[in-house]
Design a binder for these strands. Structure first.
Lengths: 148, 148
DNA sequence: CTAGATGCAAACAGTTTGCGTCACT
DNA sequence: AGTGACGCAAACTGTTTGCATCTAG
C-alpha cells in the first residue's frame, strides 16, 4: 500500500515492519514541528486514515521509541514531580528508574544564548536535565528498568 | 497542633493557612532529596499521619505550586510527548499552553560540566528546556492558560 | 503461511472533584 | 463563627491490554 521507499528503508534499518499507519504517524510527526500529544497527533493522522484507532497511535509511538526512531521529550510524563529546592540547580535524571537528583547550578558552565529566540518568546528560566543512568541502574541491566 | 513557627511563617508569607498535613507534606518533600511521585510521598507522609488521604497530598501539591512554594519538575507530566527531530537541539517550552518548539543546539553555548557528578552516574545526554511564555500566551493573560 | 500489526472495547493508573465534616484564624 | 482544609468515594483523563481479524514479509 503506497509506502515510500524512504520509510520502508527506515523501518528496515530499525527492524520494524512497514505499514501504512506507521508511515502516516511518523511522517505526520515529522511534518509538525511541534511535539503534539498523542491525542492531537491522532486527530491529524485521522485525516489520512479515518479508520485508525487511538490505540494504534499509542502502540506505535511506543514501538518507535523502543526502536530508537523517536525519543520521549519528558521522561516523567505519567507522574507529577515537584521541586522544593529553592536554590538554582539542575537535574540528573536516570533514564532507567526515572530517579531525579539535584545538581548545584555551579556544576555547569552558565547557559548562554548565542542567537535570538523566536519573536515574542519571553524567557522565564532555563532547565537542564542531565540524562543517563544512575549508579544503581548502570550496575544492573543497562538501560532497562531495574528489577529490585 | 504542634506546627513549627518556621512553617507558620512560610505559609503566612504565601497566604496559605498552616495545617499539620501541609507541614508534614512540605517537610517530607524537603527532607527527601529526590523528587518522589505523589504516591511515594503519600506513603512517606502516612508514617507521620496515618489517616491522611492521597487526595489531600494532591490538593496540597497543587496548592503549593500555585502559591510558588514548589515548582513542577516537568511541565509535561500528564501527556506523552515525543521528538522526531534527529538533530541536536533544545526546547522552548511555553509554561502556559505547554507548547514545545525546537531550538537548534547551536543557539546555546555548549553545556560544560565544571565539577564531578555523583559517583557512578553515566551521562547519556543533556536536555535543555528554555521555559517561558510563547508569543501567543505572552500577549494574552500572562502565565494563565489562554482561552482560545 | 506465519508473526506481527490493527481496531475495538474493556481495564488501568494517576489525578481531580463533590460533598459532608472538621480545624485554622 | 466563617472560610477553607480534610477524608472519602466516585468521576475523569490519559494510557495499556486482550482478543479477534487482517496484513506484511
Amino acid at each position: 500500500m503506497r509506502l515510500s521507499t524512504e520509510f520502508r528503508d527506515l523501518c528496515r534499518r530499525h527492524k520494524l515492519s512497514a505499514t501504512h499507519q506507521r508511515q502516516v504517524i511518523f511522517e505526520t510527526l515529522q511534518s509538525l514541528h511541534s511535539h503534539p500529544s498523542p491525542e492531537v497527533l491522532y486527530e491529524r493522522v485521522r485525516r489520512e486514515i479515518p479508520s485508525i484507532s487511538l490505540a494504534t497511535v499509542y502502540k506505535n509511538l511506543k514501538t518507535f521509541v523502543e526502536a530508537g526512531m523517536l525519543r520521549e521529550v519528558s521522561l516523567h510524563h505519567g507522574t507529577l514531580r515537584v521541586d522544593s529546592n529553592p536554590h538554582p540547580h539542575h537535574h540528573l535524571v536516570c533514564a532507567s528508574c526515572k530517579a531525579i537528583m539535584d545538581l548545584d547550578a555551579a556544576s555547569l558552565a552558565p547557559i548562554r544564548l548565542k542567537s535570538k529566540l523566536p519573536k515574542g518568546f519571553q524567557v522565564q528560566r532555563f532547565s537542564v536535565d542531565i540524562i543517563g543512568l544512575c549508579r544503581r541502574c548502570s550496575r544492573t541491566r543497562r538501560g532497562t528498568v531495574s528489577s529490585s
